[in-house]
Write a protein that binds this DNA or RNA. Structure first.
Lengths: 147, 147
DNA sequence: ACGCAAGCTGGAAACGTTCAAGATACGGGC
DNA sequence: GCCCGTATCTTGAACGTTTCCAGCTTGCGT
């Protein structure tokens, strides 16, 4: 509670033996605000906190963070990669077919039985990724107005 | 049984009010052979049947076929788009993290209960897409050999 | 057989992403 | 507190997939 936001990130990084750098702290803060952000959005947000950060650094940082389990990379078909801070709780996503908006969905069953593939052709499975496709509330209204 | 393969495709197209063209028939034949093919692989295979087909035409045809429900577009994160002919049976996919190979997995529960998202933030969901991530048999052996 | 529109061709470019080489700065050890 | 080695950042470029555009060709209803 007494720790400033910046130091929470630093502790997370140090706990994994990663160097604490300005770009990494800034990305952690941006992701911590929530949402499913594109690389470009993250870069823009980071640049409001630091004077200049190269696009490359943002990609590097995001790669390092997701390898370390501090960020999660999601990539719905037909969309550029997005990143979120919420990790380790096995939740899934709903994607709007019309506008591409993404929302979180908690997995009702925890480690659901149907997500344990039977007869996977000899594959050793370590993760089940679920993406729901549909229409967000705003696009439902937009579509109804068209009719 | 008495219909040549080419005419089966023509019938499918006509049934949906779509024009029957050489590129479309060729793509249908290629997809009919099975597998999860990249656009580039499809284009190459098509060009062994027809003298020349533009890349553009292949993209157009695949887009039209998937809109018509004759092909299904799958796009695992970090991979170019792939297409398969098997549609309408609600099956899912296992993707190898190492080599990118894709295999089919039947959905054990049919319309599984856990795939009915509860509390999806007002979204109207029409499809649940499941992707399993793991290691294919060949890459399991390769990894074991490294240790 | 005719005409219209759907569909194809060819060239070009946009997009997100990754690679390479060198400069910088973090953090353990003195 | 200072120094060094290396992880990390910067800059600049390139890659591969996918889409856009204008114009010609072709399937199919009449």
């Amino acid at each position: 509670m007494s720790e400033p936001v910046e130091d929470q990130g630093a502790a997370l990084l140090r706990a994994r033996g990663m160097r604490v750098t300005r770009p990494r702290l800034a990305v952690l803060q941006v992701l911590g605000a929530g949402g499913h952000l594109e690389v470009d959005e993250i870069a823009t947000a980071v640049r409001t906190r630091l004077d200049s950060v190269s696009t490359q650094a943002v990609y590097d940082v995001l790669g390092a963070l997701s390898r370390a389990g501090l960020a999660r990379r999601i990539e719905p078909a037909g969309s550029p990669a997005r990143f979120e801070a919420r990790t380790g709780d096995n939740h899934h996503h709903v994607v709007c077919r019309a506008c591409g908006a993404i929302a979180d969905v908690d997995c009702v069953h925890g480690t659901a039985p149907c997500l344990d593939p039977v007869g996977a052709g000899g594959f050793v499975v370590d993760e089940a990724e679920v993406t729901f496709w549909g229409l967000c509330p705003a696009c439902q209204r937009a579509k109804a107005a068209d009719d």
